[in-house]
Each structure stands twice: as C-alpha cells, then as structure tokens.
Design a protein around this nucleic acid. Structure first.
Lengths: 210, 210
DNA sequence: TGTCTAACACAACAGATGTTGCTTATCCAT
DNA sequence: ATGGATAAGCAACATCTGTTGTGTTAGACA
C-alpha cells in the first residue's frame, strides 16, 4: 500500500523498512526463506507484526524490495549505466549481474536454487537491468525513447539475466571474467538493433515487419 | 513430493491432478489467484485438502504445473520444435508464446499483470521455451549438446519471453503477426551464435574471449 | 484371482496469516 | 511552538496453512 521504496521522506518509514530488510537479510543467513515467518521478521526487526503489513503485503514483497534495492545499490556504487555509444557499458552490467548472484545476496537461499521464490528474485533483478538498459537506449529529439526501445530493453535484459543465471547455476562454472564477454557477445546484437528498429538504417537480419 | 506431472501411470494420480488443475482454472475465472485458498481448490475439485498436499507443496506449485502443462500442450498440438537448420522454427516458438499469453491462460489473472505470482508464470513458460530450444541446438557427434548450448538456450528463451511479455503488456499492442518477426529478428543472432561458440566458424560479432 | 502397495478421505492440531480498531508517538508545516 | 496528519504499537479476530495419524479403497502385479 505504501509508496515505492525509493523517494521516501518520512524517516519513520525509512527506518522501519530498513529494519525489516536487515532482519530478513540476517534471518536468511540461518534458515531458508520459506522457513521464515512474517512473525520472525517482525520480531527480529523489533517491529510490530501489524506494522509489517503497513509496508509490504507479504514476505515475498519484502524479499523483492530487498533484492531490487540491493542490486540497484550495487549498480549505483559502480556508477553503472548503459550507453548505446559505449560498448563497455554492457560489459559492466553483465559483470555486475554475475557478481550480484555470486556474492550470495540472500544468504543460505543463494544456494537454494530450486526454491519456489527464486522466480521472484529473478524478476526483481531483471526489472533493475531493464531500467538501466532502457535509459541508455537511443532516443528521439525530445529525449523520449522510441516505442521499440521497450521491446529491445526487455529482450536484452531478460537475455542477460537468463544467461548469467545459467552460468551461475552450472556445476563447475568458470570465473565471471571468462563468461562475461561471451554473454556480451550474445546480447550486443539485440542492443545494437535498436537504431535499426528506428529505421535509421536497414539491417540485413532485421525483418521488414512494421 | 510426487514424480513430475508427466509420465504418471497411476490413473488415480492423473485424475486427482487434473481435477485440481481444472478446479484452479475454473476458480481463476472468477477471483484473482491470491484470493483463492487451497481449501477452495480442494473443495472445488472434490478432493480432500490433505490430498492436495500429497501432490503439490502449495498453490503456487499447482499454478506452476498448470502453466507449464498448458504451454507444453500448446507446443505439442502445434508440433512446435526448434531446429537450428529451420528458420521458421523460431517463428513458431515466438508465435506460440504470444498466443499463449493472449489466450488468457489464467482467466482473470491474465489481466492481473502486476501480481506477485506473475514471476512464477514467467519462470514456468521460460523453462518450457528453454527446453524446446535446447533440443534443436547443434550437437556434437554423440548427440550431446555443446557446453555453451546451455547459455545460448537460456539467453534465447529468456529474451523471447521477455520480449513477448513486453509486447503483451504494452497498452495498445499491435497484432501478434506484426511483432513476431521483430522478436525473431532480435533473437536469431543469439541462436545462430551457437555454432560460433563451437568454433566451427568465426563470427564477426562474437567476442574472442575464451 | 488374490495380495500388496499406495492413493485418498477424514479429523484434528498448533501455528501463521492478514485484518481491524484503538491508542500513543513522531513528523511536518504553518 | 502548535496542531493536523500519519506512522507505529498493541491486542484480538476469523481464517487459512501445513502436518500427522488412522482407516478405507482402488489400482498394480503375479
């Protein structure tokens, strides 16, 4: 029911949400996410259980906010931002995604690859990637992204995360430095097709539909 | 706890699971998924609630199985299978994904785009796409997929679904026939990079890393 | 056909969930 | 500083959850 986690002025709200996220983070060092009850989180955060529901609809919403916030923080710390004109930007995004998965954002749950809530984590990260990709995509004169940019950003961000996750899940995975260029090579065609969709220049592989 | 939904010989199990899935499908015509309790599903399926838990860990697992089964059925009906040698195969997969989202697999929930369980649906469909893509990817002499095929299949399947979903969510979306070639154009570079990763032939866009 | 295995019904349980109404404490703006 | 707005504490509620135990029934297999 409350406003999005960013842009919260009231210090009471910030405090409570930070407490809840920290509590969940700590609890996940010990048990798996499913084994944690809203009661436990509220108790660990020294927050009333009813107050929890003032901020998040359930523990899954809290997890989502926590993951999104954590990944966004990582991107901000590294000053990561995509720019269609800068090839190394895609590399930075992919590397950040690798590192975020590797660093065990979610304690014991990080190993817990087949958990039912894993898709929630995936979705949260993909959304963050999509956002940072979208702002770097070419725009028209008014700074408004082209309509097809949404499709390109979606395809690219999902492809990036899907590939990174596949690498992360693989049994004897190579170091990140090794896989990052491979993934970048896979997704650059998508990212570079954005100008083509704006019909600035025809591209052989691009379909003429639309 | 039980074996995967496919390959179940015991008719009792088949019957119960079909009843449960049909019950959930029917209930979702009326209410949103979150508003449906396991109790309701069991009751609508004329199945004891305890029996529900013999088959699925919770209602989310049931939803996942339902979505995966439905999409798999759609692919089977259309005889969809990816083949790296056949360009129209990718088209068929993308079109099937568009149609599956459009046909409102999940009743009222189909409109319910921002629901917390949406990521579960996404994950189920992506997994299905990934499977059908993977079997069509190039293999070595023994029929074993190349190691990089996993990454390629993951990137391609996530990209396909992400793009289709973005299209589906867009307010005044064009007809599927119009967007399919665009998406196919976005993902074919990924799919065609599979041979390159096998170092059969160098490709200009592919990175030399590794 | 007969026996064995396992699916299902049923009841009951402790615990968690999500909500409500009320009071107190904290903030923000005037 | 003061007053209005709102977040947080608190208690209690009906309900749902997930599990366990026991008995019955239906399918599998020889």
């Amino acid at each position: 029911m409350p406003i999005s986690d960013c842009e919260v002025r009231d210090p009471r709200i910030r405090r409570t949400r930070q407490l809840l996220q920290a509590a969940l983070r700590n609890l996940m060092e010990t048990r798996s996410f499913e084994e944690i009850a809203v009661q436990d989180i509220a108790e660990a955060a020294t927050v009333n259980r009813a107050t929890f529901y003032d901020h998040y609809t359930d523990k899954y919403a809290l997890l989502e906010a926590m993951i999104a916030g954590g990944f966004h923080k990582l991107l901000a710390e590294r000053r990561v931002q995509y720019d269609a004109a800068c090839p190394s930007a895609a590399r930075a995004i992919v590397l950040a995604t690798c590192d975020y998965l590797t660093q065990g954002h979610s304690g014991k749950a990080g190993c817990d690859q087949q958990s039912a809530f894993q898709p929630l984590i995936d979705a949260a990260i993909v959304t963050s990637i999509r956002r940072v990709v979208l702002v770097g995509l070419p725009r028209n004169g008014d700074g408004v992204p082209e309509p097809a940019a949404g499709i390109v950003a979606a395809a690219a961000s999902w492809a990036i995360y899907g590939a990174v996750k596949e690498w992360f899940r693989s049994p004897g995975r190579p170091p990140a430095e090794e896989i990052v260029p491979v993934i970048v090579g896979l997704v650059t065609p998508i990212l570079e097709s954005a100008p083509a969709l704006q019909s600035r220049q025809p591209v052989a592989a691009a379909p003429s539909g639309s």
